[in-house]
Every structure is written in structure tokens, then in C-alpha cells.
Nucleic acid binder design. Structure first.
Lengths: 226, 226, 226, 226
DNA sequence: AATGAATGAGGGTTCATTCAT
DNA sequence: CATGAATGAACCCTCATTCAT
């Protein structure tokens, strides 16, 4: 996660981050501020200059930590995504009682509530974020993703007996697709918002959580029904 | 559809398109060329100047037909989308024999093969296209979409007895989400392509048609199983 | 003047103005509409397309009557200016009783009240209007101006005994300069308006009529005092 | 003043102006070049790109120093205007002997000789320059103007006993108006120049200095004569 | 390591004017 | 005469990134 949970006494960062520890803290600070700006606006509207200013750093300094804007946001996506994986794993691990497809669907959908920045970022992944990034960073991301997919996928397979080996991961892939698509349908542009408020437009209005729950439930029921 | 299938003898357009017919032809020409450029590159890379040049028109002329770049691409999306709806309806209407969920899933997924420009455009709909467009155009689009959704949805309900009223449209909504998401996963950036070719990355490789068929089949099975 | 005083029954103009009479009417119509637009906005904001539209004519048609935008507005200036000369002459001719410098100053200043379009146009004369105009039109304007200056100047010399031959015209020249300058000082840009409303800014606030009266009175007193 | 009178050895500017001193120098350089271009042409013809090029800077760099074209030219006007105020004050302070209205008029008119760029800019003040400028800049300008008006006005009142308190400033306001107006009348467009050279057009030919001297003399005589 | 001044390609849009119809 | 489709030059400003200090 971006914000560090352990609330240790915050020393002000030294002017120059010489120790790795300080560098890491500065890196997190930048991500934090980028998240703040992105939450309030959009990728295009977040200027590197603003990120720097909010971090109380010079523009050039930000580029010392992230070589490109895309790299910065890919790192942000990573932070948010793997935090979410952890959270989901936590929910799947801790819950007592029997797990049904519907329960999993609900759990997953709820775990994504308030994760708008994450899901919006997900939609930019291929189109934007991976466009201007070093192969190394791209690979690092993919490796970690693969691992998380494997781990969480396995957990799902444990919870839902009807899922065969590898099907947990695949379910997560479909989940990813649905999340990306539904997020875009739910976040309507201002011009469209009005139009969609007309009564007969109801079928086009998308409530992210509700629709995702529904789709996942159906998907899992379909897997169970084989 | 943008390209006119019926290869009727092409009269050269007059220098000035004064008749509605000629204007419509010129409009289609512009869309055609925009599609050509977009297919080969990306939204950001298509310059209005290039569209004009390829259409053998002056830059200003393009703006006579489409007030903004967004309007042009929204129009293009409309053309492609409604052509696809028609195509799908054709496939669903003409096919003889019994329709199962799986057959529908396959039909739908196949109808989307080679529709990369359409599905990529779909992903830009809210984020980009509806950002700089008149409420009138936005509304027009939504109205036509609603209608198409209703019509095609009803057809689906006819074909698949287990779909209740309105569920056809909803299925199409989920389809939209899946398509948007899967398209993005399938179109990997050049940097990523290499990474994904590593053998152990197989689970992250997405074959659009295959994955869509799979997801839709499962989804429909889930609906049938209720 | 632009609007024709004699309120004869308005026949709708024929589609094609074949007779000189009709052409003249059409010309006046265009000027009228241009004035309407200019009064509400500014030279730059008046588009030739808008003038055409408000005149219910095609864009090209306007150019049949005025070869350039500048020519149109120069013609408008002429119409307003000579109408004003006539008005002023009327006031100077009709008034009974003794004429003093102050009375003339007041009369002139009042004759310019509500003539904002005229005085604003005057400020554009050299900078803008005469830039893209045929020598013929420029000359015609100057000739007529010279004549009006002579006529009204002579009238002034009649009214004010202390004005020698030619001094009436010269006074009008200085008047022109003052009007142009004061108009610009009186029409403050929105940003400036606020600033000028601060109490201590009073000395920078210009009331057109008051300041013009004052300056002209002083000027005439200066001429008298020689 | 834009050009620095004291010809101290010009150190070449460093590639990056980091010290305030260097930044100020660069700012002046830009103003200088803008002035050069403006003197030779007109506001509309001066492109920001040209200013940059002549300053041997990148286009963007100019915008680092002046947020808009209007801001640049307002700053230029300020520089020229306040330099002129200083010059005028110098002339009014240094001259020995008795000051008459006529002497003041001549002094003022002569102080404006060769100040064509300044006076032309003055005519753009409300119409153009204050249109796209921050309230802060607009206010700063007005405050400084007020102050200069007060100071120079007081000096005038000292020199000319017949001027009451505040009348010096008011005289400067009328001066401003006259200058703006006369400048426009003196700068005839190429088309008009020819026309005006015809012998009988003499009354319309305006010699800026001569006419200004005349008008100011009369104005001051009028004030004295009360 | 940090700074922040400098870069400069990039691009959609406007609108007076022309001219084919 | 009238039309209105077509033209195309013109142009300010943004902002990710670089690099001198």
C-alpha cells in the first residue's frame, strides 16, 4: 500500500536521501501525492509538476525516482494492486463458514469498493502505462502479477471446490476484464451523466459494485454448473 | 458501416459536395480514412491533419463535417458499433437449428473477430470520446445504443429460452465490459510482448476470441443454471 | 445613418437584388446587422459568418457587397460618422441664443452620448479599418471626411466668433483625438473594472461625457483666451 | 527602461539564469526583442515564436517569463511608460527659468518624440493588453500608474501655479487621451498615405508633435484663463 | 542528490476569403 | 446574383523531459 500503516514517528526527511531507507520513504511520498491528485482528477490532468510541488520536491527530483510519468503511475498501480490482492487474500482466508460462488462474488466486489483509483488505473495499463516504460519494469510487474495471480488463484480454488487447477487464475483474469470494462461504464463523462438520468435510460446506467457482483455470481455459477 | 460493401461504380465526388448525398459520401470518406489511420496506430497518434490529407481535403474541411476530433471518432465508433449490431443480429437470425448458450457465445465472439478498431474505440468511449462532444451528439448516441441493445437483447431472449425479459440487454452490457477489458489485455504493448513470450508467462497471455468465448459460455451457463 | 428613417412599407427584398434600389437596401441591411453585433461585442468577435446569418444571406453574398471585413466596417463607420456630423450640425444650427465655448463643448459631448459604437470604431480607423481596403474606398472616405470637417468646422467658426478660419476644423481634429482616447479609457476591460472600483483608484476612473465636456470646454476657453 | 543606458561590460548570460539578477536580465532581453519587432511592425504581426527566436530562446522559455502574449506587451508598455514618466520628470525638474503653459506643452510633446512604440502601445491598453492578463498584473500596473500620475501631476502643479491640487493628474489624463488619439491619426496606413499626400488633403494630415504641442498649449491656456 | 531553468515538438481549431455550382 | 462548401494559413500555449548549476 502507498500509505505506510505502521505509524512510526515521522522524522522529516533529510534534504538529501542518502540512505536507502530515506530514498524509499521519498519514493512512497511521491506515490502518495500522485495518488491524491489522480483520485481527484484524471491521468491526463495530473501534471508531473504538480506531483513534484505537492511532494515539496523539485520537478527534476521526481524524475530521479521515476524515469517517466508512465513509470510513476505503473508503480502506483502496482502498489494499489498488490495491496488489494493482499486484502482479498485476507478476506478469503479469515472468513469462517462455507464459501459459495455467490459469497466469493460478493466478497470480491466489496473488496473493490472505494478502489476507484486502482480500477481506473487498470484500464490504462496497456494503453498508457506500459507504453513508455523500461522492459525491466514491465517484466517486474508481470512477474509479480503472475505470482499474485497464482497465489490468490490457488486460494480461490481452495475455497471453491468446483474450481479446477488453474481455474482460479483464469477467473481472476475474467475478473480483471470485467472490472476494467465496468469501471469505464460506471464513470460517465459529465455530458453523458445528464442524458443517462432520463428515466428511459435506466438500462444504460451501471452501478459498479452491483453489476460486478451479479456478473461474478453468474460466472461462478456457470463454472459450478459444468 | 464505413466501407460500402456494394461495390457500385464510384463516381468521383464533385469538388463541392452540395447535394446531401455527396455530403454524406464525403463524410463517409473522412470516417474511412480516420479508420485507416486508427487501425494502424492509436487515437493519440491520429492527427486531424493526417485525416484531412488522406481524404485529400484541407484541414478546415474536416472540421466542417466534424466539429471536434472527439466527435469524429465518436461517429466512427457509432458506424462500427451499429454495423456490428446488425451483423450480430444477422447471424442470430439466420442460423438454423437449436441455439445453446455455447453457440451464442461462439457466435458473438466470432462476430467480434477482426473488429479490433471497434473494441479499442469502445474502451475510449467514456474516457475520451464523450469528453468533448455536444450533449446532442452524446444523447443521440445513447438513444441509438439503447435501441440497439433493446432489439438485439430481445433477439437473444428469443434464441435462449432461459433468458428472462431484459436479461438479453443486461448480458450485452456484461459483454461490453468483457470485450473492453479483454481487448486491453490482448493488445499488449511492444515492451510487454517480449516478456509475455517467456514460457512461464503463459497464464497472462490472452487470446481475445478464445477467452471471450470461454467467459461468455460460462456466463450463459450460469444464467441457465439458475 | 444605418437605419432608414423614412418608414416606408417594407417590401421583403427579392431573392436577387437586380435593381440598384434593392442592392442599396441589401447593403444597408448588412450594415445594420453588423452594427447590432458590434454594439454587443467587439470587432474581433464579430464574424463575417454571423453578419451573413443575421442578414439571412449566404456568407459569399456579404462579400459581394463588401470586399473585405474591413471595408464593411469602414462603411459602417462612415454611416455612423456622417450621421453624427449631420446631427451635430443640426444641434448647432437650431439652437437659439448665444453660443459660448462651454455650450458648444456640452453640445458636442452630449451629441456623442450613446454613440459608443461610433467612437469605438473611430479608434480602429487607422489601426484596423484602413489596413485592408482599396485605395478608392480609403480616398472616398477621406474626401467625404474633409468635406464634413470643412462644413461643420465653418459652422463652428460662425457660432464662436473667436475661432479664426480653419480653426473649426482643427478643433474637430483635436476632438477626434480626445474622443478616441477617452473612449478607450472609459471602456475598461473586465479585469480592470474591479481594480478601478477600489476607492483610491478614483483618479483613474473616466466618465466619458464628463471628461470630454471638461476637456473641450478648457480647449475652447484656451482658444478664446488668445 | 528596456535598454540599459549604462553601457557596462555585457557578460554573456549563463545558459540557465538561476540568479535573480540573470533572470531579470533575460526578462529584459525578451522585452528588448519584443520591442524591436513591435517597432518594425504591429502587435498582431509580432509572433511569440519570433520573439523567442530573436532572443535565442526556445518558444517555451518565453512563456516562463511571461504567461501570455498580452502580459509580455503589458510589461513592455510598463517599461516604456514609466521610463517616459521619469524622463518627463527629469525635464520638468532640471529646467531653469520660468515655466509657462506653452513651455510645459512643448516639453511634454518633445518628450514623446520617438516614443512611437509607447504611444501605439497605449492605444492597445484597454482593447488588447488588459484582456488576457491576471487581475494581479492589471492591478499592479494601475497602482504604479496612479502613483506616477500623482507624482508627475504634483510636479506639474508646482511648475504651473494656476494648476490646483489634482489638476496636474487630470491634465495627464487628457494628455493620455490626446496622445492615443493623435498617434492613431498620425500613423496612417499605407493606402491612406498616398491619398493624404494630395494637396487639398492638407487639413487631414497630422504631425504628431506639432498637433500635440498645439492642443496642450491651448488646454493649459484654457486652464490658466479661468 | 537536488534543483528548476530551458527545451521544442506538437496540434486542434478558427475564420476571412475564394470559387465551383 | 446568390450560394455555401472548401480552403489553409495562422498561432498560442502545454508539459514531459533534460541538463547546467
Amino acid at each position: 500500500m502507498v500509505s505506510n500503516g505502521t505509524a512510526k514517528a515521522k522524522r522529516a526527511l533529510p534534504l538529501r536521501a542518502r540512505r536507502d531507507e530515506d530514498k524509499e520513504a521519498r519514493r512512497r511520498l511521491i506515490l502518495q501525492e500522485a495518488l491524491g491528485l489522480y483520485t481527484a482528477t484524471s491521468y491526463a490532468e495530473v501534471k508531473m509538476a504538480d506531483v513534484a510541488e505537492r511532494s515539496r520536491l523539485a520537478k527534476g527530483t521526481v524524475f530521479l525516482y521515476f524515469p517517466t510519468k508512465e513509470a510513476l503511475f505503473l508503480a502506483l498501480l502496482e502498489a494499489l494492486l498488490f495491496a488489494w490482492f493482499e486484502k482479498l487474500e485476507g478476506l478469503l482466508s479469515s472468513g469462517a463458514g462455507r464459501w459459495t460462488g455467490e459469497r466469493v462474488a460478493r466478497t470480491v466486489a466489496e473488496s473493490l469498493e472505494g478502489q476507484e483509483p486502482l480500477t481506473r488505473l487498470l484500464a490504462l495499463l496497456q494503453t498508457v502505462l506500459e507504453q513508455n516504460v523500461t522492459p525491466a519494469q514491465a517484466r517486474g510487474f508481470k512477474e509479480r502479477l503472475l505470482e499474485a495471480l497464482g497465489r490468490t488463484g490457488a486460494l480461490l480454488e481452495e475455497r471453491l471446490a468446483f474450481l479446477g487447477p488453474g481455474e482460479g487464475g483464469r477467473f481472476l483474469l475474467h475478473l480483471h476484464a470485467l472490472v476494467t470494462g465496468l469501471r469505464q461504464m460506471a464513470d460517465v463523462a459529465p455530458v453523458t451523466r445528464e442524458v443517462l438520468e432520463l428515466p428511459h435510460m435506466a438500462p444504460l446506467r451501471v452501478d459498479f459494485t452491483r453489476e460486478l457482483t451479479e456478473a461474478l455470481t453468474t460466472l461462478l455459477r456457470g463454472l459450478e454448473a459444468r
